[in-house]
Amino acid sequence: MTRLMPSNTMKKVLSLSILSLAVAATSAQARDYDEIRIGVDVPYEPMEYRTPDGELTGFDIDLGNALCAEIGIQCEWVVQGWDGIIPGLMARKYDAIMSSMTINDERREQVLFSEPYFTPPSAWFAPATSELEETTEASLEDLTIGVQRGTLQDNYVTDMYGDVADVNRYATADDMVLDMEAERLDILFLDYPVGKATLLDSNNRNYKVIGDMITEPKAYFGDGFGIAFRQRDEALAEKFNDALESLEEDGTYDEIHQRYFGEE
């Protein structure tokens, strides 16, 4: 009897420690990353692409690196085609996806999203000679606005200014730019990156952006891009959300945003 007592205690201690070990092991699996890999699909300028010497760069890459630095973990980028990007996350080829992924309900069923870190902006473009300084119902009255048919920009302009201005709807952005050059349109409303590429970067600075970039309200412009994690990595997602918040506060976010979306 007396001999058995300590042995029984031993057993208890042993099983308890095994249990706690197991708990520690599972929690380590879900929580304590000291380095993570992030999946990205390139190229998608200016969000993610390669410099001529082959290095990854872009808004997502710079922001992702800044987030990792803020959290204090090592980050490695893994290039993965878009089709397999969510399966790759599930198969643990990487631990997060940061690749201009729009947050939506279908994806939410498979992955866990961070807070949105970016909403692709839309902007108003007009000829450099335009006297418009802002876009209000009064200033746009009786002007002709060009939009691409069926886009979120079309919905926004139709609802906000459809009653005061003429809205011309085009099948492609190219047709729209052609009519802008023909002076048939006074102002265009389109995706900022598309407008920058077709109107600002070519055409010898004949065009300019009027007013601020527009990403609100959400009902038109969507939830924006989020970083995707596996559902169980809630702690990791939380760390990225906190880091995102502090980067927005200390101005790092604005600096990176300016780097890719600022005006020269």
Partner: peptide, 18 residues
């Protein structure tokens, strides 16, 4: 409607896209 006129087909395309 391919040159932005809102004729009958233009209206239908608009409603479709909307």
């Amino acid at each position: 409607s391919v040159v932005t006129i809102m004729d009958l087909t233009g209206a239908a395309r608009f409603v479709y896209a909307r």
